[in-house]
Design a protein around this nucleic acid. Structure first.
Lengths: 134, 134
DNA sequence: AACAAAACCTACTAACAGAGTAGGAAATTG
DNA sequence: CAATTTCCTACTCTGTTAGTAGGTTTTGTT
């Protein structure tokens, strides 16, 4: 299940995307947090992940804040969720950093998980940030 | 992500289904656990859920064990996973026992989650236990 | 130069879920 | 009565989730 991290990340990105359209200035975290009613400190943790993954950039100092690095229509929802630390894979053995399962050839369910993995990946990468704005 | 509970439940049901075909006797937990290489005590917790949800029945005493209550082709994978306590819904607010979200009308993502919920429900309920045997 | 506003950084906590263990009570068959 | 088996309650240990707290660094403005 998608936790607050992923959900907040989406709200944060949506907030930035709509703010963006007005002017192309940097938006301070404080503003986003108060608009969204989410703790500043917790949002900081999430936004740090998004910066690390280059989905947004931050500018320090007065007049600083955060800004999208691409056009809103170029952000797949799946990428945002994964950047926030969410796992789209249905089982652990499908993660790239996991050591290969020993009983894979005996496993009767792996092809089902792989199929679902593809399904959900395609679903969440097929939806762009702009698709959520309407 | 599907945890061991759901995955073990599936293996357990698959084991019972293939055992079933031989004779229609009750299969003791000890046998399933040793065949599957899973701790008896932990499997007990999982099998209890399956019994509670009427997917299988147990018979106590000597010669006892567990048995399917339906034909193997009548078990959707989704039902087994849910009986084992897995959550197929992508977000908590879609669960039936959750109080309705206050910001639902402001929420820009709910329709996406609902769509995905339907998708994964259809996927896992469309696959039957017998589909995994091949 | 001083100040304020902002991102950035490290560390901590409380509560809950995941993955089991342990030890027995009750039922059933031989 | 004894062996076998389900059934039941309670406990533990580890990691994750959802934050909080308190600071340091950078940058623009006065």
């Amino acid at each position: 299940m998608i936790s607050t991290k992923g959900r907040y990340a989406l709200r944060l990105m949506l907030d930035l995307a709509t703010q963006e359209s007005a002017d192309t200035e940097y938006v301070p975290l404080k503003d986003i947090a108060s608009r969204q009613g989410i703790s500043e400190k917790y949002m900081e943790i999430i936004i740090k992940e998004l910066v690390k993954n280059k989905l947004i950039i931050g500018l320090r100092g007065k007049g600083g804040g955060y800004k999208l690095t691409r056009k809103p229509e170029e952000y797949p929802v799946g990428e945002i969720l994964e950047a926030a630390g969410e796992q789209l894979a249905p089982v652990a053995c499908l993660l790239s950093d996991t050591e290969p399962c020993k009983r894979e050839d005996a496993c009767q369910t792996i092809s089902m998980w792989k199929k679902f993995n593809r399904l959900s990946h395609d679903f969440f990468y097929g939806i762009k940030l702009t698709d959520l704005v309407e």
